[in-house]
């Protein structure tokens, strides 16, 4: 028996919008810790990891660990039927091949339930160890989105370099080149507007902009984004989900042939 009641149902809607273009099918895992997902894109270049902690739900009942395979496009279709202010409850029964999404309007005058077929997904689960990163950049998520979008109109890949001068995003394409440098800036009105660069060592890595642009679909989930870089590791682009957890995207770098 599984019953998860999320008062801020819009969070789940936003999570689906952030993941459904990157991943087609995924197993949602439910345990005492929370509601989570780990999935790779079809080319195994990027990975998404989601955690919504059990404490963030108004009601969280999960009698035993359960994994539910869902088509994210179909799940998104159902969640789009929920209002932005609706409370969403996810219900499942042991051994059932369906999951139910219940939507309640804030004043309880409209209650809907949508039953979706589950699927068997044979997915590979990866162990991601805690890592020391050479540089961690925290910046407004809208700024990161703007940079990825702007650069993708010039080139296909971006070089992200962190030095003591700041973080530089560079691209080149048929029409020319572009460089955007963001310097640390803590003197802002709100903490989420700050750009904070923690650098242990200078680092420079190349990534496909197509994936980074896809990650920025998570921008509505958080005012700020954290980009963690290490020369031997995939970049981690993390959006914190207020009081609940996070959505993290991992992207493998491109290297010189």
């Amino acid at each position: 028996m599984l019953e998860l009641r999320l008062v801020q149902g819009s969070l789940l809607k936003k999570v689906l919008e952030a993941t459904k273009d990157l991943v087609t099918d995924a197993n949602f895992d439910c345990s005492a810790t929370g509601f989570s997902l780990q999935a790779m894109d079809s080319s195994h270049v990027a990975l998404v990891a989601l955690l919504l902690r059990s404490e963030g739900f108004e009601h969280y009942r999960c009698d035993r660990n359960i994994s539910m395979g869902m088509n994210l496009n179909n799940m998104s279709k159902m969640l789009k039927c929920a209002g932005n202010d609706d409370i969403i409850t996810i219900k499942g029964d042991d051994g059932s091949d369906t999951v139910t999404f219940m939507f309640e309007s804030p004043n309880q005058d409209k209650i809907s339930d949508f039953e979706m077929k589950l699927m068997d997904i044979d997915s590979e689960h990866l162990g991601i160890p805690e890592a020391e990163y050479h540089a961690i950049v925290k910046m407004p998520s809208s700024e990161f989105q703007r940079i990825c979008k702007d650069l993708s109109s010039i080139g296909d890949t971006v070089v992200i370099s962190v030095t003591k001068e700041g973080v530089k995003f560079s691209t080149r394409g048929d029409i020319g080149t572009a460089n955007i440098v963001c310097r640390q800036n803590k003197t802002v009105d709100k903490p989420e507007e700050a750009t904070i660069i923690e650098m242990n060592e200078p680092v420079s890595l190349t990534f496909a902009l197509r994936y980074l642009n896809s990650f920025t679909k998570a921008t509505p989930l958080s005012e700020s984004v954290t980009v963690s870089l290490s020369s031997e590791l995939p970049v981690v682009v993390e959006y914190k989900i207020a009081d609940m957890g996070y959505i993290r995207f991992y992207l493998a770098p491109k290297i010189e042939d």
Partner: peptide
């Protein structure tokens, strides 16, 4: 030219 690495080259299956 550059080669795109795969995420599975970095993290192990559990």
């Amino acid at each position: 030219s550059r080669v795109q690495l795969s995420i599975t080259e970095f993290y192990r299956s559990t």
